[in-house]
């Protein structure tokens, strides 16, 4: 035993003061602000019973809203995965005038209030807007259709992909690319077989983050969506509508359904990161 004890990390009790009060305060604040309210959310649908909960989340209007929130987020996250990777690549590998400005601008969706993004996108894509006017002759309607939801979610999700891929691209060892090239690989082969596998886990993480954010997004979407029941009504809006009818348990049930989706996605995200670390 004594032999083994020598190899165990010695964890001397810290000499710094204040651990007890600090942890106590942090736990109390966390419980009051975050944990107790979330407990209310999870426990509230219990009054419906299991069959009641299932009845609420399988209402056609709820299912349509969940499908739209989930589907539009999936499409938007896929668009962001492609263009976010291009933006990250361009920012890391090339130099061009105004690069620093563009780099800072990528965070705009984090900083711009969602309602502002919502009214601005609606103004652009409405039939008489700058972009809507160009699309109308082509028969493409964006504002007040599910397509508008996708546009808003692309805006919201872009920084998640760029900011997860960018640091990985930056840390990529260029000697590996040189080695691939000197062994006769074409540039395209190097990109597909060397660079892409290296950034794939980060890309998937960014994709999942953008997706999770998109499912819950509200402010930027409700202006451009048109909010037609069964067509362009997102799940968070349905919560608001149920609350306005004082259907607390129903609103909480939709919320729990959304949180479960988010939880599953975070779980996948975690597994992906673990898988990445294992490689």
């Amino acid at each position: 035993m004594r032999v083994f004890a020598r190899f165990l990390p010695r964890r001397a009790p810290s000499v710094l003061p204040g651990f007890g009060p600090a942890l106590g305060f942090a736990l109390a604040y966390l419980s009051i602000i975050v944990l107790m309210p979330l407990a209310a959310l999870v426990l509230r649908p219990a009054e419906l019973g299991f069959s009641g909960f299932v009845a609420v989340v399988t209402q056609p209007r709820v299912l349509a809203a969940l499908r739209l929130s989930f589907g539009a987020s999936l499409i938007a996250a896929a668009i962001n995965a492609v263009f976010g990777m291009i933006v990250a690549w361009v920012l890391v590998r090339y130099s061009f005038p105004g690069k620093r400005l563009v780099d800072a601008l990528v965070d705009l969706p984090f900083a711009l209030p969602t309602a502002v993004a919502g009214v601005a996108l609606t103004a652009l894509y409405a039939p008489n807007g700058w972009i809507g006017r160009l699309l109308q002759p082509l028969g493409i309607e964006v504002a007040f259709t599910p397509l508008g939801v996708v546009v808003a979610l692309v805006f919201i999700g872009l920084p998640f992909v760029v900011r997860t891929v960018q640091p990985v691209l930056q840390d990529l060892d260029r000697e590996v690319e040189e080695a691939a090239a000197s062994l006769g690989a074409s540039r395209w082969q190097t990109i597909v077989r060397v660079i892409l596998p290296a950034i794939l886990p980060a890309l998937l993480t960014g994709f999942a983050l953008a997706l999770a954010r998109g499912v819950g997004e509200y402010g930027s979407v409700i202006f451009i969506a048109g909010n037609m029941p069964l067509v362009s009504e997102i799940a968070p809006l349905l919560i608001v509508i149920k609350l306005e009818q004082y259907d607390y348990a129903g609103a909480a049930a939709v919320g729990v359904a959304m949180l479960s989706i988010s939880f599953v996605m975070l779980l996948i995200l975690n597994l992906l990161q673990r898988w990445h670390r294992g490689h």
């Binding site: 975050v34 979330l38 209310a40 959310l41 968070p236 919560i239 607390y248 609103a251």
Partner: peptide
Amino acid sequence: LITFIDLPFSVSPVISGLVYVLLFGAHG
């Protein structure tokens, strides 16, 4: 604890408001 602290970021803004209505609203 760190995971719990991050929790509000993975919750829809609407749910962030909803939880307080469930606690402090007229029928909370």
